[in-house]
Computed example of a mutant assay.
Amino acid sequence: MLRPVEDVPAVVVCNSCRHSPDAREDAEGVRGGARLAEALRRVKAQSPRYEGVAVQDMPCLFACSEHCTVHLRAPGKVGYVLGRFTPDEEAARAILDYAAHYAESEHGRVPFADWPQGVKGHFIVRTPPPGFVAT
């Protein structure tokens, strides 16, 4: 049930997420989460700026009322679940740009001025790291 991954700053993408609010899959029969995972990996490979962020995937983050969801996490940092993305490179770039700021932050808080436009309005929940609550 659990697969070990590197415990590093990461974008964990739900690879089984719906493509959109109205469709599970795209015209080729591929889930939106799988498309978003592909886009994240393509964009990550295009720039060394994203080297400090892993792209990991798993089936179902249980955010099924939202589509194309990701979880940003890192040891000792507040985590975030974001969703309602289009599964394309534009969304992937915004997610990875935010994740790069997140990885560089002390506790996971990224100043609003550094948020890419493409993540604004996509936050669903924040999660405390094990052993902590946010203040």
Rank of each mutant, 00 (worst) to 15 (best):
A10F: 00
A10L: 00
G32A: 05
G29E: 06
Q117T: 08
F112M: 13
T135L: 12
D88N: 15
P9K: 02
P59V: 12
S65R: 09
G79L: 03
E28L: 13
E28R: 12
E104T: 11
T86H: 02
P111T: 11
Y80D: 08
G76V: 01
V53P: 07
R42D: 06
M1G: 07
E66P: 06
E25I: 11
G52S: 12
R73S: 15
A94S: 14
F132D: 08
H67K: 03
A99Y: 08
E89D: 14
D114L: 14
A54E: 00
A91M: 05
N15H: 01
A113N: 02
L61W: 04
W115E: 02
E90Q: 14
V5Q: 07
S16G: 06
C68D: 04
A100T: 15
V81E: 11
A91G: 10
A92V: 06
P59N: 12
L96T: 13
P87I: 11
T135F: 10
R31T: 08
S20V: 03
Y80E: 14
F132G: 02
H122G: 09
E66Y: 12
A45Q: 09
C60W: 01
L72V: 14
T127F: 08
S47N: 10
G121C: 09
L36M: 13
C64G: 02
L96R: 05
S16D: 04
A23E: 03
A92L: 06
V43I: 05
C68E: 05
